[in-house]
Amino acid sequence: MIDGLRVLALVPARGGSKGVPRKNIRDLGGKPLIAWTIEAALASRYIDDVVLSSDDAEIIETAVAWGASAPFVRPAELATDSADSLSVVRHALRALPTTYDVLVLLQPTSPLRSTADIDGAIGTCLQAGAAACVSICEVEKSPFWMMEVQGNGRLSRLLADKPLPTRRQDAPPSYTLNGAVYVARCSDLLAGNGFLGDDTVPWIMPKERSFDIDTEFDLKYLRFYLSEGQNG
């Protein structure tokens, strides 16, 4: 709880995954991938409950073993490749018997996000009086030098409406969503709003905590990254 507001952490983890089969319960550093997110959420100063949204019995069993609660099973129609995360969020809010004021969406595919990132995003959102807060990280390559291919086969700058900086170091910092933390007021989410809008504020995270596992290569690389850190 923060400022008298009840906070729910929702961990979405469906069973089907084409990019990384069974990714949510795959081993990472000696524990299931989903355990990293659950542990970080349980250590939060502000989160009241950590709830899993899943359609898969094995994922549910694993998440509960690591401390999350699973009071419902996600409907099959919300566990497809085409199901959007906001529909999953709204289903969870309506399915739970308890009413919450703030929701924090924590995807298991961002295992290195810390408890400090979670609490920082929650605090930033409420202190700013914003509708939402999302985590971002700075991109290595500025979009000022990114191109797109036109229908005629010619190149054009993606940001053609903005002047090209003379030097790369003169380009303003640019950021991308890293998928680690999404915070919003439950009333706004139930009203049909999302996490991104004119009243969204950022929580900036470093690259080393912004890993997002989408492929087998991502998982293998992160395993290597963690093993190198443990070996000094």
Rank of each mutant, 00 (worst) to 15 (best):
S114N: 02
S227N: 12
L86N: 13
V139K: 11
E148K: 15
K141I: 11
V181C: 02
T166A: 13
A95D: 05
S227M: 10
W203Q: 00
P173K: 01
Q230K: 12
Q169E: 15
A131E: 12
T99N: 15
R168V: 09
A128I: 03
I213M: 06
W203T: 00
A160S: 11
G194A: 04
S114T: 06
Y100R: 01
C186F: 03
K207N: 04
P108N: 04
T115W: 04
D119C: 01
D188V: 08
G123Y: 10
P97N: 15
D119L: 00
G153S: 07
L196D: 02
P172W: 12
T215I: 08
S85N: 14
G197L: 07
F195D: 01
G192E: 04
D199A: 11
A116G: 00
L196N: 03
G123F: 09
E140W: 10
R154M: 06
P173R: 02
R113D: 00
S210T: 01
S114L: 05
S187R: 14
G194W: 08
G197C: 07
V88I: 15
L105N: 10
P97I: 04
R113A: 07
S227Q: 14
V88W: 12
L103P: 01
R94G: 06
D119A: 02
G120F: 00
T166Q: 13
V183L: 03
A184P: 01
T200C: 07
D161S: 11
E148Y: 15
P202R: 06
A132T: 14
G197R: 08
Y175H: 10
A171Y: 07
T166K: 14
L103H: 01
T99G: 09
M205Y: 00
A116Y: 00
V181M: 01
A95C: 06
S227L: 12
R157C: 02
E140L: 14
D218K: 12
D188W: 13
A180T: 01
F211A: 06
A171C: 06
R209K: 09
K141E: 06
L155H: 13
R167L: 14
R209A: 04
G229D: 04
L190Q: 02
A131S: 14
G179D: 05
D214V: 09
V183G: 01
S187A: 15
Q169S: 12
G192F: 09
F195M: 03
S110D: 03
T200Y: 09
K141F: 08
L189Y: 03
T99Q: 15
C125I: 02
T124L: 13
V149W: 07
C125E: 08
A160C: 03
N231F: 10
D101W: 02
N193Y: 12
A160N: 10
L177V: 11
G120E: 00
I213R: 06
K141R: 14
C137V: 09
A95L: 09
F195A: 01
R90F: 06
F217Y: 13
E140H: 15
T109Q: 14
T98N: 12
L164T: 07
P97M: 07
L159F: 08
F195R: 02
Q150S: 14
P108V: 00
Q169T: 11
D119R: 00
L190N: 02
